[in-house]
Amino acid sequence: MFQLIQSLKLIDVKSTLSGIHPEIAQTSVRIGIGFNNLSVLLSTWKALTAYKI
């Protein structure tokens, strides 16, 4: 997933993650994958309403 996000950045696509379980977020940070410069929202509903899709 994070490789896909990095690849999308190369073509100037901004990604938003939503609904990530705390365990996944903690593991990601623990192994050195940060969420810097990435929009993270609590749920898919919040992501959809935030961008008015």
Rank of each mutant, 00 (worst) to 15 (best):
I11S: 05
I11P: 02
S28G: 14
L38E: 05
V13R: 08
R30W: 04
T44H: 05
N36R: 11
S43E: 03
S7T: 09
S43L: 07
G19N: 09
P22V: 13
L10W: 03
L10Q: 13
T44P: 02
D12H: 13
A25F: 05
S18G: 08
S39H: 06
K9C: 06
L8N: 09
Q26D: 15
L42Q: 06
L17I: 15
D12I: 03
I24N: 07
L42E: 08
G34Q: 07
N37C: 06
L8R: 05
T16A: 04
L42F: 03
H21Y: 13
S18V: 04
V29A: 14
I20Q: 01
S15A: 15
A25G: 04
Q6I: 08
G19E: 09
N37A: 10
F35M: 00
L41N: 01
G19M: 05
K9M: 07
T16W: 00
I11D: 03
K9P: 01
F35L: 00
S28E: 03
P22A: 11
I31T: 14
N36E: 15
V40L: 08
Q26R: 14
L41G: 00
L17T: 01
R30L: 12
Q6C: 06
K14R: 13
L8P: 01
I11T: 08
A25T: 10
S28H: 11
G19V: 03
I33H: 03
T44R: 08
D12F: 08
V40Y: 04
S28P: 04
K14E: 13
T44K: 09
T27L: 15
K14G: 03
P22L: 09
S39T: 14
G34H: 09
V29M: 15
T44L: 14
L10Y: 05
Q26C: 12
S15K: 00
G19D: 08
Q26H: 14
I11M: 01
S39D: 10
L41I: 02
I31K: 13
I20E: 01
L41V: 06
L8A: 14
N36Y: 06
L41K: 00
N37Y: 09
T16G: 02
S39L: 10
G19R: 08
L8T: 06
I11Q: 05
S18P: 01
K14L: 10
Q26V: 14
L10D: 09
L41C: 03
G19F: 06
E23G: 14
